[in-house]
């Protein structure tokens, strides 16, 4: 297969190149280059300076869209403050993939099993998007729970508040590494407020609003919380697991992780 790879050096250039030639952005390429459908024009984001960073800014941590999971995995700050995201990064794929795969690409892949997205949803992260309007750069920041990427928008950074008291992530795949999640889940707690997100159990990663509300009221009301999460997911039988299996695992994981964040 033959590709044309465009290598812009600024976000503006990247945006205008993509609007001109069509095609797709290319970050680590672990999704774009792994699918069989030929995409002829790729607009690389890897040479744009300033897309790869992990920084503390006030009561937030900002992560550049081009940051690799290896970098996230090695961040002591993340491990300490945003454990769920660190765990998701730590367990994503294997070392070779983590060396190139980016958090922007994970979000941009729109996959129901994108591990970091589940963690980011539970952590109530926001995404800063770069776009151009009337030839002028402009940026908007949206909660990841409501994210709809517009045509050509670039994920510049992910912004996460550090007021989280506790957060955990767990995934189960068919093997212990290089595995698509059969189910993944993240639970975060800020004060009494509990947030739950699940991946691989619906067409998209879902933030479980009802479940989160129930646990925020009473973090020991497992009966109601489990009933709620089973309403909020809509798994299908797929090659990774059956509906029955995914439902049992979701309920079990919820009990385990909710217990862990409240401890």
């Amino acid at each position: 297969m033959k590709y044309s790879i465009h290598v812009p050096s600024t976000l503006e250039e990247a945006f205008t190149t993509r609007s001109r030639v069509g095609g797709q952005y290319l970050a680590g390429g672990t999704v774009v280059l792994a699918i069989k459908k030929p995409v002829c024009d790729l607009v690389s984001l890897s040479r744009i300076p300033g897309l790869s960073f992990i920084e503390r800014k006030g009561d937030c941590i900002e992560i550049g869209g081009g940051t690799t999971f290896d970098e996230l995995d090695r961040s002591a700050l993340l491990k300490e403050r945003l454990t769920a995201l660190w765990q998701a990064s730590h367990e994503l794929a294997g070392p070779q993939i983590r060396n190139v795969a980016t958090i922007g690409g994970n979000i941009g892949s729109m996959s129901p099993s994108a591990d970091s997205v589940t963690a980011l949803m539970a952590l109530d992260a926001s995404v800063r998007l770069f776009t151009m309007e009337g030839g002028k750069p402009c940026r908007r920041t949206v909660p990841i729970r409501e994210l709809r990427l517009g045509e050509g928008e670039i994920i510049e950074a992910v912004v996460i508040r550090t007021n989280v008291d506790s957060s955990v992530f767990e995934k189960v795949g068919k093997r212990n590494a290089m595995a698509v999640s059969v189910v993944n889940m993240a639970v975060a707690r800020v004060g009494k407020k509990v947030s739950v997100a699940v991946g691989s159990a619906a067409p998209n990663v879902v933030f479980c609003r009802r479940t989160s509300e129930i646990l925020s009221k009473d973090c020991t009301d497992m009966m109601a919380a489990k009933a709620a999460i089973l309403e909020e997911i809509s798994p299908k039988d797929d090659r990774w697991g059956t509906v029955e299996q995914k439902r049992i695992v979701c309920a079990n994981m919820l009990e385990k992780l909710a217990g862990e964040v409240s401890a």
């Binding site: 792994a34 294997g94 068919k174 093997r175 212990n176 590494a177 290089m178 595995a179 698509v180 090659r239």
Partner: peptide, 14 residues
Amino acid sequence: ENGMGNYIIPTALD
């Protein structure tokens, strides 16, 4: 199954 991504052989961690 048509690739090593869905034909699941053990990794070093398995």
